[in-house]
């Protein structure tokens, strides 16, 4: 008989609210249906979310690691499952398996300057890291968030971005690829923010999440600034069916993205990252 510890069996979580973030992204807050169950996770990890009868998709956790009583996910409705999730309402139940995968090296970066470079929905898996960095502000050097989106209306978490920017100890720079006339912020891809941030390469840990091409350009720019690959961490995306290294779908060279990643230290995958069709 298969016991309750079956890692393929989802736990049930009830939707507390659904909030539209942009025209194609939304955030949900979930609570365990048995009420008291906490969901501890590390910033950067993901869950497999199951919609009854529709299917399962890997979605990164975007809530606060110090508040395990609620679970938050921000995602973009592009696939069958994510579209189905976007149609759920308060009180509906989702299946959750997780948390899975590796996480951002926050504990190993104490005393360092942290540069977070994100693009598009890539801010979602880094929001838990920002919560944790800010709640333990005194333990880190500079905290720099460089965030790029397609257009001003695609920016996620606008209120929080304003709050963080309002602090005197967090540097938040936002840019968009294109904008209409009334946008007074930066225009240009996220990599254009990197040289302007002027950080100390020997003191900096960089964490990147976004589309793979954006990650590649970002790495190049960070390296131009003198940051070594062992201080660059990226979050990867691949097809996943199990989340626990058994189904083979997320094979990436010698890694399984679901269990060796999604967060990788760049020097460890340098030989295969950016190679065609690996």
């Amino acid at each position: 008989m298969i016991k309750d510890s079956n890692p393929m069996l989802p736990a049930q979580f009830c939707i507390q609210w659904v909030r539209k973030e942009t025209h194609d992204t939304f955030t949900i807050e979930l609570k365990s249906t048995n009420g008291t169950h906490e969901f501890p996770f590390s910033a950067g990890q993901f869950n497999m979310l199951y919609v009854f009868g529709v299917g399962e998709a890997p979605i990164s956790i975007s809530g606060d690691p110090s508040k395990p009583e609620v679970l938050k996910h921000t995602t973009r409705s592009v696939g069958t499952v994510t579209k189905a999730i976007s149609k759920l309402k308060k009180g509906d139940v989702l299946g959750v398996r997780g948390p899975f995968g590796s996480y951002w090296p926050l504990e190993d970066s104490l005393g360092k300057d942290i540069v977070i470079v994100t693009g598009g929905i890539g801010l979602a898996p880094l929001r838990p890291a920002l919560y944790q960095l800010i709640s333990q502000r005194e333990k880190y050097g500079r905290i720099v968030l460089l965030y790029g989106a397609r257009m001003p209306e695609d920016l996620l978490y606008k209120k929080e971005l304003e709050q963080w920017r309002g602090r005197f100890d967090v540097e938040v720079k936002v840019t968009v690829d294109s904008a209409k006339g009334n946008w007074r912020g930066n225009v240009g891809v996220v990599t254009t923010l990197i040289p302007r941030a002027q950080f100390d390469p020997l003191q900096t840990i960089a964490m990147i999440c976004g589309p793979e091409v954006m990650i590649r350009f970002t790495i190049k720019e960070l390296q131009n600034c003198g940051i070594k690959t062992e201080n660059i961490f990226i979050s990867m995306e691949r097809n996943m069916k199990c989340g626990i290294g058994l189904c083979g779908h997320c094979q990436f060279g010698f890694c399984f993205v679901c269990k060796d990643g999604p967060v990788f230290r760049l020097d460890r995958i340098k030989a295969i990252f950016g190679k065609r069709e690996i």
């Binding site: 397609r150 294109s178 891809v189 990599t191 040289p195 091409v213």
Partner: peptide, 22 residues
């Protein structure tokens, strides 16, 4: 740097390029 940035901009990396393929 500007040329690279322009190329990245042209790639429109955040766009959905194969909508509803799923």
């Amino acid at each position: 740097q500007r040329l690279e940035a322009t190329r990245l901009q042209l790639l429109d990396v955040y766009g959905v390029h194969c909508e509803s393929n799923d």
